[in-house]
Amino acid sequence: MMPQLPPFECEVVRVHDGDGPLWCRSGEKVRVAGIQAPDFEDAAPCRRPAARRTAYTCNDVAARRSQQIVSRLTLGRRLICQPTGRSYSRIVARCTLPDGRSLSCAAIAAGAAVRWDRYWREYGMGECR
């Protein structure tokens, strides 16, 4: 876990899939904390034969649906994101939508992702309302 960093604003300009990365206008790439969404079949974990999948397999149809849901929630909007760690070249963050909802909880509620218990606890995600 990274040292406590201040929250930052992310105006979302691109969404890869339901758990990120989300590209911010300022250049940051954000991995949404505590959730797992379907991966596109050409994603790096899908290319690794021994990849351990926890909730989803690689499925382009499900990944596209998840991407569309999260895009509707975030594209063009300003999120407030609290960094919790790093994953590859991305900042892992708990992000809040402009209406005050947790992006992680909103993605779960909309069917774009599932809670990834190990990281949910590690990142102190709390309860969804």
Rank of each mutant, 00 (worst) to 15 (best):
F8N: 06
Y56W: 10
E41A: 14
G34P: 06
A50Y: 12
Q36R: 14
M2P: 14
Q67H: 11
R14S: 13
A44I: 12
T84F: 08
P6G: 09
L22N: 00
G27N: 11
A37N: 03
C81W: 01
I80Y: 13
P38H: 01
C24Q: 01
Y56A: 03
V92Y: 00
G124L: 11
E28N: 15
P83N: 10
A62W: 02
C81I: 02
I80M: 14
Q67I: 08
C95H: 00
R121I: 14
P3G: 05
L5M: 13
D117T: 10
G111F: 11
A55Q: 11
R65N: 10
A112Y: 02
A109S: 13
G85I: 06
R47M: 15
A93I: 03
F40L: 10
R31D: 07
Q68M: 09
R65A: 13
F8K: 05
A51I: 07
V114R: 07
L73S: 08
G111I: 10
P38V: 08
A50P: 00
L103I: 02
A33M: 03
Y56P: 02
P38G: 03
D17W: 01
D17A: 09
D60K: 14
R86D: 09
R94Y: 12
A55R: 13
R121E: 15
R115S: 11
P83F: 08
T57Q: 09
R53W: 10
R86V: 15
M125N: 03
A93D: 05
I80V: 14
I108A: 08
A43V: 06
A51F: 09
P83H: 04
G34H: 01
E9S: 15
V92D: 02
V12N: 00
M1L: 00
E122Y: 00
V30T: 03
I91H: 03
P49T: 11
C105K: 02
Q82C: 02
S71P: 06
R115D: 07
G76R: 08
L5Y: 15
A43L: 07
R53F: 14
T84P: 10
A44V: 13
G34Y: 02
Q67C: 09
A109T: 10
S66W: 02
A43K: 03
R121F: 02
R65F: 04
A51N: 08
R90K: 10
A93V: 07
P98Y: 04
A107L: 09
C105E: 01
G111D: 06
A109I: 06
S89Q: 11
E122P: 08
R48N: 12
T74P: 02
C128N: 07
Y88R: 14
V30E: 00
R121D: 15
D19F: 01
D117N: 12
